[in-house]
């Protein structure tokens, strides 16, 4: 008997990605789609893609989607979820979208404890616009707008989103993962599933920060990019669970009348 071990996820359209070779978005898109398939929530999921490379995410995800202006995804997602509490609403954001132009919308959605899920792609650079400095760019990392390397005196420090958001009373589940290795990819998928489950159970704000590859703008091969994540990027942004109040939130939810 032949057994299907690999197939195109139902929640992913059969379009060819516009992403660069080696880009992490393709991996994460697939993971999100697989999770949506496995949880059987395609029909009730609404996604909010960002401005950035993933702005065309609606060409790939086969779920209802609405594009948000740059950084405003969480504001839009908050409103959609409030109007349709039984739908699964996720916002997909890059580091510029979340940690720079949309930090207010993201932080306040998290702080309000909006019952949404944020998929946060951290690749330490602005991809779509051609490799400029991001809020998550490392100190001394060269980009087109930090040609001599990011200087803390001029450009400030890398913004550690998971660390900051885990301090907010409104957040329930926050994990940082990486898609630089097969093990990391599997872990990321688990985290995404956990985040969606957290939302489905009505337990509040969940976010998965994903250290992702941008070989084009890092000017590295894909393999070197994976290595750079493991050896350099993940030292500044250590993967791990930053907050997991799921059990506690469940108890509180059950105790409520």
């Amino acid at each position: 008997m032949a057994k299907i071990v690999f197939k195109h996820p139902q929640s992913l359209k059969e379009n060819i990605y516009h992403y660069c070779p080696g880009c992490g978005h393709s991996i994460v898109h697939r993971l999100v789609a697989e999770v949506i398939d496995e949880m059987g929530i395609r029909g009730i999921t609404i996604g909010v893609p960002p401005a950035g490379c993933a702005v065309l995410a609606y060409n790939y995800f086969d779920v209802d989607m609405i594009e948000a202006p740059h950084g405003r995804g969480p504001a839009m997602a908050s409103a959609i979820k409030r109007c349709l509490p039984d739908r699964v609403v996720f916002s997909y954001q890059g580091d510029g979208d979340l940690a720079a132009i949309g930090i207010a919308e993201s932080l306040h959605a998290a702080n309000r404890g909006e019952n949404i899920t944020v998929i946060f792609i951290n690749n330490a650079v602005y991809g779509m616009t051609g490799g400029q400095m991001a809020p998550t760019t490392l100190l001394s990392q060269r980009t087109t707008t930090s040609p001599a390397g990011r200087k803390k005196e001029l450009d400030g420090h890398p913004v550690k989103v998971s660390e900051i958001f885990s301090q907010l009373g409104g957040t329930t589940y926050i994990e940082r993962c990486s898609v630089s290795s097969p093990a990391g990819v599997n872990k990321t998928k688990k985290a995404i599933r956990k985040a969606f489950q957290c939302q489905i159970d009505g337990l509040g704000f969940s976010m998965v920060e994903i250290l992702s590859l941008c070989p084009t703008n890092w000017k590295m091969s894909s393999i070197d990019s994976c290595k750079w994540i493991d050896d350099v990027l993940s030292k500044e942004y250590p993967p791990g669970i930053y907050k997991d109040n799921i059990a506690e939130a469940k108890k509180t939810a059950e105790a409520a009348p």
């Binding site: 609405i66 504001a75 839009m76 908050s78 409103a79 109007c83 306040h108």
Partner: peptide, 25 residues
């Protein structure tokens, strides 16, 4: 079915109503 959100900014507010409008409200 009424929802009120005091938003963090006018920018957030307009994008909230955009999202909500998309759902048909």
């Amino acid at each position: 079915g009424g929802v009120f959100i005091q938003s963090e900014s006018e920018v957030a507010a307009i994008n909230m109503i955009a999202g909500s409008s998309a759902t048909g409200v």
